[in-house]
């Protein structure tokens, strides 16, 4: 029987906080996998998304990546693992396919966040930037990327949650991290451990999301985020004419938590 007391007992048992299977180790593993994955995915997705958004060419890359999200993550995990694992010996046989799948899953939200962020930049601002003699690179770095920040960050939040969740599932193909508590607990019928692991995973996801929400405060210009003296209201009025429903769906589906959770 799982009660608050049994779960509490698990969390207060010093044995669960030590060694290779201890909470700190597993938590760090989970963070490590998430960090590595996001770093690789950012390096791939941001330049591509920026280029597609800036040039308006090869939009099918974004559409394609979005469509690929329909592939069940569990299936992708198993399929890639079965294809890639034989190529590696040692523990890499589990880590490499897992990271590969996590990267694949993180790319679509980052790609479409970067792309739609840049694509949604006010055409007049872009026109003015070119008209005053900015090079393509200057238009991209000084105008488009700063203006794309909100949508890029909601893509990043979406990707981060996706990676944390899928890294948990990847324990089923022997990846370390918090998912071990869930998968190992299942194997040994240790439901208390499963619940404890689930709580840790949920907490990690919530904290990660809050951290990224805070990041948004620092990374986004107040002129865009609308913090401070009534900017938001004015901005909504002004951009109201262009604010079609499709665009708002795009945002909301990219990151259901796109808005301020604070």
């Amino acid at each position: 029987m799982i009660t608050f007391a049994t779960v509490w007992a698990w969390f207060t048992d010093p044995a669960n906080w030590q060694g290779a299977d201890g909470v700190p180790t597993r938590m760090l593993e989970h963070l490590k996998f998430t960090g590595i994955t996001l770093a690789i995915a950012l390096v791939i997705a941001v330049p591509i998304g920026a280029w597609v958004g800036h040039s308006g060419r090869m939009r099918w890359l974004v559409t394609g990546a979005n469509a690929a999200r329909a592939i069940p993550t569990l299936g992708l995990l198993f399929a890639v693992s079965m294809l890639v694992s034989p190529l590696f010996t040692s523990s890499l046989a589990f880590t490499v396919p897992s990271i590969a799948v996590l990267v694949l899953l993180a790319i679509p939200p980052l790609l479409s966040g970067t792309y739609s962020g840049i694509e949604s930049v006010d055409p007049a601002a872009r026109d003015a930037a070119r008209g005053m003699g900015m090079s393509d690179w200057e238009v991209l770095t000084r105008v488009e990327l700063p203006c794309a920040m909100p949508l890029f960050l909601s893509g990043l939040r979406s990707a981060t949650l996706q990676v944390i969740a899928t890294a948990t599932i990847a324990a089923s193909i022997s990846l370390g991290g918090l998912g071990r508590y869930l998968i190992d607990g299942l194997a040994s019928q240790d439901y208390v451990q499963m619940v404890a692991g689930s709580i840790l995973v949920a907490l990690l996801a919530l904290v990660a999301d809050l951290v990224l929400a805070l990041l948004e405060r620092f990374a986004v210009s107040p002129g865009i985020s609308g913090r401070g003296q009534g900017v938001a209201r004015r901005r909504r009025l002004r951009f109201g004419r262009g604010g079609d429903a499709a665009a708002s769906v795009k945002n909301s589906t990219d990151a259901p938590l796109g808005a301020d959770p604070a």
Binding site: A165, T168, L182, I199, A202, A205
Partner: peptide, 11 residues
Amino acid sequence: YTIPSLALFIL
């Protein structure tokens, strides 16, 4: 929405 699915199934 942030709660990972496997964790939610178990919780």
